[in-house]
Amino acid sequence: MNNIEITIPKTLQEALELISGGNEGIGIIAGGTDVVAGMRQGSNRFGGINQLVDVNHIKEMKGITGAGGIVTIGAAETFSGIISNKIIRKELPLLAKACGTIGSVQIRNRATIAGNFVNNAPCADTVPVLLAYDSTIEIKSLAGKRELPLAEFLKAPYRTQLNSDEIVTSIKVPLPKGDFKGDFYKLGRRRAVAISRITLALLIEIKESRINRLRIASGAVTPIGTRFNGIEKEFEGKTADEKTLKAIASRLGERVIEVTGLRWSSEYKLPVVQQICYQMLYSAVYGGGK
């Protein structure tokens, strides 16, 4: 790994030119918390890399701005940067919370948001939240730019739609319109620097005692972060009573079995994810709880 070449482009244009040559061994590095750790552990995802393009100094990929009801987060923004941002803390509290649970201070000072979902580990903590917020991402290459929903971008564990000549430049999160309540939940084997065993992001809007809008997304219990549109549709319009909340949670259990199949860990995770889902709904609807 020592004799890798590293370039630090100052502009996006420069970076795009660097990766446009069709060089198989070229990769992008942001915080490096997946790349460097993965290379050291001999992960085959980073095996053939002989050149890295560091995107941390590209202005276009940094910063957080809000306009027209959309918050745009630079792809190379670190988790520390995101957590300390006022707009995010106020308008996208689930994202602030999820970013705050990632790794340690040292990791959050380096690790970036795009790195998290481009790496697309099953346990990537920002993914369920970004899915619940209906985020879209902007991708650029020399050929131009495309925008697509994150849900479409993520394909399979550790695999995305990203082509080798493309860079994710930003992520756009529309501010939820309406009176949403909700939370992000993470369960690990210990209380800090933990690989997620279960994550859930949940937003619910109640109007006149009915569920007006519902958004549920999971991580770590599904092969990749997954949004449950079917469940959402099914329950929108239903009375927001305990019975319904329980039914939503049970339905989530069923869907997780369909999506994931039964795995070694299901015996534990399946019942727990349903309980957690119910508890999050309950707290959102009735307040209180923890």
């Binding site: 490096g32 340690s104 000072n109």
Partner: peptide, 23 residues
């Protein structure tokens, strides 16, 4: 990046020096 024994300050922020490359 798990143990923090390698922590240094980079531009005043704590980072794991085992995850930062010279380049």
């Amino acid at each position: 990046g798990e143990c923090g024994a390698c922590t240094v300050l980079m531009n005043k922020k704590a980072v794991n020096s085992c995850l930062v490359l010279a380049g």
